[in-house]
Amino acid sequence: MASLITCPHCGTRPKEEFSIRGTALTRPHPAASEEDWHRYVYLRDNPKGRYQEYWHHAAGCRRWLVVDRDNVTHDVFSVTDAAPARGASE
């Protein structure tokens, strides 16, 4: 249990408590072009370095989080709840 993620609701927890969904992309507008939707659904960058992902705290508060981390050094820069960011766009 080496990788620790500090959940904004539960505190510092091992990564085993989380499941990772993937890149935190912003969902296109429903009327967006097919290319936009194709890019959103299928195409992914594979960056080396800093990366924002959706993590689900499955064994804890069961909230979706946005984890901003470096996938080379595994430095975690910030962990925030995904809901406020999404609620603003709704």
Binding site: M1, G11, T12, R13, E16, E17, A58, G60, C61, R62
Partner: peptide, 23 residues
């Protein structure tokens, strides 16, 4: 994997966590 020292987990505290691989 949670620190259960009284300073960080005092009486009355509770939380969901993984215990023996079960939430």
């Amino acid at each position: 994997a949670v620190d259960l020292h009284p300073d960080s987990f005092p009486i009355g505290t509770s939380a969901n966590m993984l215990c023996c691989h079960v939430a």
